[in-house]
Design a protein around this nucleic acid. Structure first.
Length: 815
RNA sequence: GCCGAAGUGGCGGAAUUGGCAGACGCAGUAGACUCAAAAUCUACCGCCCUCAAAAGCGUGCCGGUUCGAGUCCGGCCUUCGGCACCA
């Protein structure tokens, strides 16, 4: 008999699927829809095993939903702008455009070899003008709504990538670039920002989405909401100094003020005798942030300005200091220091011998850790004038009310989240559609002039300035308003903008018309039902795309609040040495070679079977052999005839029952597991069924029970191994295509066990096992159990004190 | 330091959510087939003691709740992620 030959059948069916447009997804208003989406790849030119690990199980899930009767949209595209293309150009002299499109072409082929149900008619490539026209369109809409603005400020700059970065793209303690791991430096630049902070509060609401707790927590931490009060301190110079505090109940304990070195008031309020030291300190601080932020020895330094502030609650005169432990970028860039109840303030006070005044005492029964009551939120206010004696949480509210009444402050909320810096000083991105006119100022490019085309013939050398700046024809333009000479913005947009709306682009790629996507498609498919991808995007892409969708809703483009209703993260496949895969380590697993050797179906099934999907782990080249053997066994099991079958008498009724039982149990298990993304146990269940089928094959081959088992098996296998299932389906004489069949339904009665083994415990220890009818009641089981020799002996003729019975599982007898 | 996730055989991992710990697979051992090897098939496969059986031990550690704990509660330890002078 012909053996399982993966390469032959996979190529054949991939062509057939394409010819018959099996995976075209079209709007069918009478059918429930399911929009399954997996994160789009960057076209690096090589699909690696991580892509497979993300996409193949996602495809399996999408196929499962399709068989369950949903009209499924499962699109694919490319996040095609970005640095590697430009770097390749610099290094090897290939134009980014050529490099990228070649890579897209290659990866398309690699993706096809996976046998996924992607609808290629909906493919979108973000570097094509028909796509980035709309990325620019969104910029203009954001600008119109006041959500895009230009501002000069100290920003993070990656000296390796030669561009500024968003706060989200700066990682780790050493504040390195997310792409190249180089530590970033600060630069004072004019940059475009998106006002994501306007949506901070709404982004904290996760009630409408089923996302992993992990991602929700990371986003909550990232947004970093803290509630408290803004308090106004009068300075003796007559200036007002605003500070943010989460602890207005500790106001009476404020014994000094601290300004960030960059605080605008510093220069103004510093008195003559202190001017030189303060200036020197500021210079030092500035240098330090640029040179080495790593100095995490946390020694507090600062200088006195000579100025004094008046504490609004008790009119105490308190000194104003400058210190670099206060950051300009958070709150107001100034704090009231309460050394008695804040660790950092205490360290500072100890260093410079400033007074420490205790205003919160532990509640009765609670003892403070040290001599002071640092950081804890409960306690009783003391030394706080009329508020003394109040519990601290209540005090906070009362003090805020009092501040508001007396005009000395107000309730305030602060977020850690910063506005999204979207300017990049690179060539390979969508140009920011703005013109600078000497007489009209900042002028947005009119919608009808979109796209602002990226010129092909730029010099993309990494100078730290945008290459477009040196492209004269691009740079020089006319003002859309006054038609006088003007200059274009030469920075391009962060590629995360392109990926913030790609799920909408797939609906009608490169859409022509007044809006970025077709409304009739949107009305049917949106929002995304199931999103899958890596957790590393928790605080970047996944926040940005939520932000985009909320803005789109406010623009009237969509009528929902969240882009993706459900999200699942896969883990990471490591090299066989348990290290992260990398070319330099030489531990990279190439999927193309695996497909060549084992076939796509084996690779798919192994990626599902080998690990818990959300965890991932090290590759095991022996493990994939096991799955390969399994698929070979399946082939022989379903296709190899049993010589002389059907000749000798009736098949045993018990075996038939057992087989049917297993089939229906497996249907249930597979259904539950795929619903829950438990791919490994789903494959294991198929293996169990095939093991049983192998055992009973010689007795039951070609009986109706066998046929039912065989067909069910193929249907259950179809989402995981689409090619093999299609081939088996055809060879079993069924009509094309297996992927248009309905998912099998399990029959509760057939799946039910007739007899079950229950465990008999005495005092919680297993002493005996006995088969009982599954529907036996407690009394019946008790009778059987107490008659067992072992149990009788252990009880010594006495009646048991107590008997616990768990139906169909166990009986625990206490003597 | 704060937040989160995870610790189960030699390995990847199961365990209907409080009820037979180790499904399924990898690796291993023995056997069958073979001149031989590979492939395939069959059996065994947590630890300890034992010729064997029985007993005993066993889900990171310590304690608790319970007839019964991998699962629940309290306290630790380790690993991996995220955040971090955020006022």
């Amino acid at each position: 008999m012909e053996r399982y030959h993966s390469r032959k059948i996979e190529g054949y069916w991939q062509e057939k699927w394409q010819e018959t447009e099996l995976y075209r997804s079209v709007v069918r208003p009478d059918q429930p829809k399911h929009y399954a989406l997996t994160m789009l790849p960057y076209p690096s030119g090589d699909l690696h095993i991580g892509h497979w690990y993300a996409m193949a199980p996602s495809d399996c899930r999408a196929r499962f939903m399709r068989m369950r009767g949903y009209n499924v949209l499962f699109p694919m595209g490319f996040d095609a702008f970005g640095l590697p293309a430009e770097n390749a150009a610099i290094k090897r002299g290939i134009h980014p455009h050529v490099w990228t499109l070649q890579n897209v072409e290659k990866m398309r082929e690699q993706l096809r070899s996976m046998g996924a149900m992607f609808d290629w008619e909906r493919e979108a490539v973000s570097c094509l003008p028909g796509y980035y026209k709309w990325s620019q369109w969104f910029f203009l809409k954001f600008y119109e709504k006041g959500l895009a603005y230009r501002k000069r400020s100290p920003v993070d700059f990656c000296p390796q990538c030669n561009t500024t970065l968003a706060r989200e793209q700066v990682w780790g303690e050493d504040r390195h670039c997310e792409r190249c791991s180089t530590p970033v430096v600060k630069k004072e630049l004019d940059q475009w920002f998106f006002r994501i902070t306007d949506y901070a509060e709404e982004l904290l609401d996760f009630s409408k989405i089923d996302w992993p707790e992990r991602v929700v927590t990371m986003q909550k931490n990232w947004i970093g909401k803290s509630e408290g009060a803004e308090v106004i301190f009068q300075l003796e110079t007559g200036d007002e100094l605003k500070v943010f505090t989460t602890r207005p109940d500790t106001l009476w304990g404020a014994t000094f003020m601290v300004l960030a070195p960059e605080h605008p008031l510093v220069e103004k309020i510093t008195t003559e005798p202190h001017r030189d030291t303060v200036r020197e300190y500021r210079r030092q601080a500035e240098r330090q942030t640029e040179i080495e932020r790593l100095a995490a020895d946390k020694k507090k330094t600062g200088v006195f300005t000579g100025a004094y502030a008046i504490n609004p609650v008790n009119s105490e005169r308190i000194p104003v200091w400058v210190a670099d432990y206060v950051m300009m970028g958070y709150g107001t860039g100034a704090i009231m220091a309460v050394p008695a109840h804040d660790e950092r303030d205490l360290a500072f006070a100890r260093t410079y011998d400033l007074p420490v005044l205790e205003v919160i005492k532990p509640m009765e029964g609670v003892t403070a850790d040290g001599e002071l009551f640092i950081g804890l939120e409960d306690g009783v206010m003391v030394n706080s004038g009329p508020f003394s004696g109040l519990p601290a949480p209540e005090g906070r509210e009362k003090v805020i009310a009092w501040l508001e009444e007396t005009g000395r402050g107000k309730r305030a909320v602060n977020y850690r989240l910063r506005d999204w810096l979207i300017s990049r000083q690179r060539y390979w991105g969508a140009p920011i559609p703005v013109v600078y006119c000497p007489s009209c100022g900042v002028v947005p490019v009119p919608y009808e002039d979109l796209p602002v085309l990226l010129p092909e013939d730029a010099e993309f050398l990494p100078t730290g300035e945008s290459p477009l700046k040196h492209h004269k024809e691009f740079l020089h333009t006319t003002c859309p308003k006054c038609h006088g000479p003007a200059e274009r913005e030469t920075d391009t947009m962060d590629t995360f903008i392109c990926s913030s709306w790609y799920q909408y682009a797939y609906l009608s790629p490169y859409h022509e018309g007044p809006l970025p996507f077709a409304q009739e498609e949107a009305a049917y498919w949106l929002p995304v039902d199931q999103y899958t991808g890596g957790v590393e995007h928790a605080c970047m892409h996944l926040i940005y795309t939520r932000f985009f969708t909320k803005v789109m809703r406010d623009l009237g483009l969509v009528n929902f609040d969240e882009p993706m209703l459900s999200l699942r993260n896969q883990g990471i496949i490591l090299g066989e040495d348990s290290e992260k895969m990398s070319k330099s380590r030489g531990n990279v697993i190439a999927p193309d070679e695996l497909v060549e050797r084992y076939g796509a179906d084996t690779v798919r099934a192994y990626l599902m079977f080998g690990w818990r999907w959300e965890l991932g782990g090290p590759w095991d080249s022996k493990g994939i052999e096991g799955v390969y053997r399994f698929l070979h066994r399946v082939w022989d099991l379903l296709l190899a005839p049993v010589p002389g079958s059907g000749e000798e008498g009736d098949p045993p009724a018990e075996a038939i029952k057992a087989l049917r039982r297993k089939v229906h149990q497996t249907i249930k298990k597979a259904t539950d597991d795929l619903t829950e993304f438990s791919f490994n146990t789903y494959i294991a269940a198929l293996m169990e069924l095939s093991n049983l089928m192998a055992k009973v094959k010689k007795d039951l081959y070609q009986t109706p029970a066998w046929t039912e088992a065989a067909e069910s098996f193929v249907l259950l296998l179809a989402p995981a191994c689409p090619h093999l299932a299609e081939e088996l389906w055809a060879r079993l004489g069924r009509e094309y295509s297996v992927h248009n069949q309905a998912w099998p339904v399990w029959d509760k009665e057939l799946a039910a066990e007739e007899t079950v083994e229950i465990v008999i415990q005495v005092n919680g220890k297993i002493k005996d096992r006995v088969m009982i009818p599954a529907d036996a009641g407690e009394d019946e089981v008790r009778e059987i159990a107490l008659e067992r020799e072992v149990i009788k002996e252990l009880l010594g003729g006495k009646p048991p004190r107590k008997v616990i019975y768990v139906k169909g599982r166990l009986m625990n007898i206490l003597p």
